Computed example of a mutant assay.
Amino acid sequence: MIYLLRHCKATGQEYNAELTSEGKESSIKLIPILSKLNIHEIHSSPMTRAIDTVSPFAEKNNIHINTTEVLQERILSLDAIPDWKSHLEKTFLDFDYKLENAESSNEALKRIFTFVKSLDNDKNHLIVSHGNLLTLLINKYDKNFEFIESLKMENPDFFKLDLINEKVERLNISK
């Protein structure tokens, strides 16, 4: 089984953005929830907010965190853009749309999907990543989960991906 975890609330979108105090509290509250899942491997974005989200669980359960840039947030733009939501929406309407020096939805989806398909089916995996990238993966299995749903995702948010039955479901997290 593959579990998908969007990072806890962070101070920003920068690579080294840390968790807020609320985000740190949420990461501690995740320990008993994740401990019930018999996680064998943790795979995380190398971005600080993702690692800090899963570190308390990993430390308590003595599980190594495998970081990979494959799981870092999708690059919508290298520059700050004030109307980023309209561009993000365009990437869901046209999976080949992208700004200069950015990544299309198809490119980002291929990146995470190739990674997910490479995982050992006999183990339970926890993937810790970011809202936009996870939305693209979830959308592959649930076409109703698109732009609007990505904006409704919480920090943290939690899903179970069943590759055998090709379905994904949102799991409740008590905050």
Rank of each mutant, 00 (worst) to 15 (best):
P46I: 08
K60M: 12
R49E: 01
H87Y: 10
I127H: 02
L133P: 01
E154K: 15
I31C: 06
K36Y: 05
S105G: 11
T53F: 08
I28L: 15
N61P: 09
E25D: 10
L109P: 09
T48Y: 08
D120E: 07
A102P: 02
V116D: 07
I127N: 00
V116I: 13
N61V: 09
F115H: 15
K29H: 11
K85L: 15
N155F: 15
I148C: 00
N155C: 15
L99V: 04
E22L: 12
F115V: 15
E107A: 11
L99T: 07
K36A: 04
M47W: 04
L109R: 07
W84N: 09
N106D: 14
E146D: 14
S21W: 09
T135A: 02
F115S: 15
R49I: 01
S21F: 10
P82N: 15
T20Q: 07
R74M: 08
I51F: 10
M153K: 06
M47Q: 11
M153P: 05
S27T: 09
N61E: 13
K36P: 01
N132W: 01
D142A: 07
L30D: 05
P46Q: 09
K60T: 12
R74S: 05
P46C: 08
K36W: 04
K85G: 07
L88V: 11
K90T: 13
K152S: 14
L71S: 02
K152F: 14
D79E: 15
V116F: 09
E22N: 12
L137R: 01
S27Q: 06
F145G: 02
T91D: 03
L34Q: 07
I33Y: 15
D79A: 15
A80F: 15
P156Q: 12
I51K: 09
S118C: 14
K85D: 12
T67M: 02
H43T: 06
F113W: 05
N144V: 10
T48A: 07
T135P: 00
F147S: 04
I75N: 03
H125C: 06
T68M: 08
D79M: 14
V70D: 01
L134H: 05
N121V: 08
N121G: 06
F57P: 01
L71T: 04
D122A: 12
V128N: 03
N139F: 11
K60G: 08
T114M: 15
I33C: 09
R111D: 03
M153W: 14
S104L: 09
D122S: 13
I31D: 01
H43Y: 14
S86F: 13
H87R: 11
F113P: 07
A102L: 03
D142I: 04
W84K: 13
I65Q: 03
R74A: 06
S44F: 00
S77A: 13
H64Q: 07
N155P: 13
D79C: 13
I33Q: 12
N62K: 13
S45I: 06
F95P: 07
N62G: 06
K143P: 05
T135Q: 00
R111Q: 04
F145L: 08
N38H: 04
H64G: 00
D83S: 13
P82A: 14
